[in-house]
Nucleic acid binder design. Structure first.
Lengths: 354, 354
DNA sequence: CACCACAGTATGAACGTTCAAATGGGGTGT
DNA sequence: ACACCCCATTTGAACGTTCATACTGTGGTG
């Protein structure tokens, strides 16, 4: 039979001090005389005392708990990014003494309702936002209600400078990624390199297209770049069907905004090109599918991003000034992973940037 | 300026009743006279009152919070299963009024330490275990400490009947999956169908091998089946390198214990077989990689499993008798998804069983 | 020697909820 | 008329912590 859980009071009277002294030993050790501190600490160890999160939360209104929305797995291919991010975030939060609570929402409004709910009933200390986009209602709401949060993704906007934003964020430098991918294809001797991306979004997609454009212009390819660029939905089929048009315009290699698109394009090229010509396609996100098929891809450092997000957020939550501590706005350089098509299990990682 | 959060007391005196009456309206409406009930409910709506989880938890010692371990993404291919499971679990828990807290652990012992910790400090109500295996120390520990939990995966054991186990669990019928995969290949005219799996584990892997064996024996292939079966590590490279040996023994088609193995085998067959022969390989788990490459695969109903796990667990947590409510031990039939290799975007799903 | 500052420790109150028991106001039965 | 019971509602206490404040003894200072 296991004995009852010790509390501050029960523990205190078993040592012969007051509950507040025990509390101080754990929360503000410098206030307690070293001799008694030792004595109390020993008792804490032996009894296996654990403070009650509920009681502490009731009094302090802090839960040491962070919220994260789990977005529905749309594609399954790009979903792997979320998986890696989530795992790193869990570990980082755990190491920083925070717990992580999940919620699921279909759209931004539903997410806001969930945040509101969790804030009121569970006193969550902060939130991690993912998938930020232009005109994001969530950041506005959170700021208006003075809720601490950090975003994975910069605050996309045509007018405002993201580096001036009030809230902390960490993002991947998509432009740098596509730029180095384009650079890699240029090195291989390609000149007419196309870009296969999404429709204009004033955000993620435009950023990735911009990197390709920058590299192409730097290489002196000042012709009309627009005709080398295609914009479609983000799935495998769309990637495949966009290929023919680009080929007709003389494209010999492709940089893609996602692995889904890259995979579609790759398969289509395989079907269309003569067998001896190996399709030159670079994807984005370095998902398991890219690895399995032997597709080169831009690898975003999501685990690193997760750790930095927790670092910034816990800095804010600790009430420390924005001046010191980790930078409030961070852009991380992705690396390029070069593979030989179908060379299963024989990946040749190659770091660029970072 | 947002006004202060209403509490039971503040709300009660604004209506002119006692706090307990308000509490009863929310928790035991039948105790309150309909007239006052209406009055209170109206006030609750208008004020936007939300009960404090911390206070409730402190008093009742229930947190309405469930714990789940997030296992490190090993493969990236099979990790997608975890992703789908997690998402369905989050939604199901949310719908049932529970929150979901994540923790990360490297092995079973570390998980037990985390559970112990969360149990004491955060009063978690229950846990969801995944990846059960023979001699699992976690189930023993949880039972010993009378902690409510449900497992995704049956309690593998040579001696004990899983259907007699004390704790609830939901599992996928792996044997039925490989059996129908084998049946499919038999229909296609194959006779010497090999099985590519893991080393004996008295669990998941043996189960999947058993389904293949059952189908083969039923087809009258009573020769020594052992020589058609290979056991290796669970990754793409291992799958590829196991192929040659099986081919030498006259195997013309393969059922695999995972998509990783299937993918490796598939690529190797492509390299070895003449171009006009299409490799006949069926994987397991129906991961995005299988879909992308056009590999047939056994699809486990993980989302359904997640919902059923929450159903059983919340039934237990509500203190209802084991007799009524959802079955405490459930085995779910997977379905077979048939694809044409490389026919990207042109998937032909085909349901079997279930 | 009375006084004060200060470090160390102890006490009262509060956070917001639910459980257990007490109270009040109709009936209904004898 | 009285005892009785039942329903609806209220009151006291408790869950385990931390904040604010009060107490105690020691050493220094005028």
């Amino acid at each position: 039979m296991t004995q009852k859980k010790p509390t501050l009071v029960s523990l205190a009277e078993s040592i012969g001090v007051s509950r507040q002294t025990v509390s101080n030993v754990l929360n503000a050790p410098q206030r307690v005389k070293p001799a008694t501190r030792e004595r109390v600490l020993k008792a804490v160890q032996e009894s296996g005392y654990r403070p009650s999160a509920a009681a502490r939360q009731l009094r302090t209104r802090r839960s040491m708990d962070l919220g994260l929305r789990l977005t529905p797995v749309t594609d399954g291919i790009n979903g792997a990014v979320q998986d890696r991010f989530l795992h790193a975030l869990t570990e980082a939060a755990q190491d920083a003494g925070y717990r992580l609570t999940l919620y699921s929402a279909r759209d931004d409004e539903e997410e806001i309702r969930h945040i509101d709910e969790l804030l009121h009933v569970a006193d969550l200390d902060g939130f991690v936002l993912t998938g930020t986009h232009a005109g994001d209602p969530r950041t506005a709401w959170l700021q208006e209600h003075a809720v601490p949060f950090a975003a994975f993704g910069r605050p996309w906007s045509r007018t405002a400078d993201p580096f001036e934003s009030a809230h902390p964020w960490v993002d991947i430098d998509g432009a740098a990624g596509t730029e180095s991918a384009t650079g890699f294809l240029l090195e291989q001797g390609h000149r007419r390199i196309g870009f296969l991306g999404w429709r204009p979004d004033e955000g993620l997609g435009d950023d990735r297209r911009a990197g390709w454009r920058r590299a192409m212009e730097a290489a002196g390819s000042c012709g009309s770049l627009n005709e080398l660029s295609a914009a479609t939905d983000d799935d495998v089929a769309a990637g495949a069907s966009a290929v023919d048009g680009l080929l007709a315009r003389g494209v010999t290699a492709l940089v893609c905004a996602s692995d889904s698109l890259a995979l579609g394009a790759f398969a289509q090229l395989r079907a269309v090109l003569p067998p001896e010509v190996e399709p030159a396609v670079v994807g984005f996100d370095d998902t398991p599918v890219a690895a399995a098929v032997g597709l080169s891809s831009v690898a975003p450092p999501v685990a690193d991003a997760a750790r930095r997000i927790i670092a910034v957020l816990s800095h804010v939550l600790a009430g420390r000034p924005a001046g010191e501590g980790p930078h409030r706005h961070q852009v991380l350089k992705p690396s390029l992973v070069v593979r030989k098509p179908y060379a299963l299990g024989r990946t040749v990682p190659r770091r660029q940037g970072g």
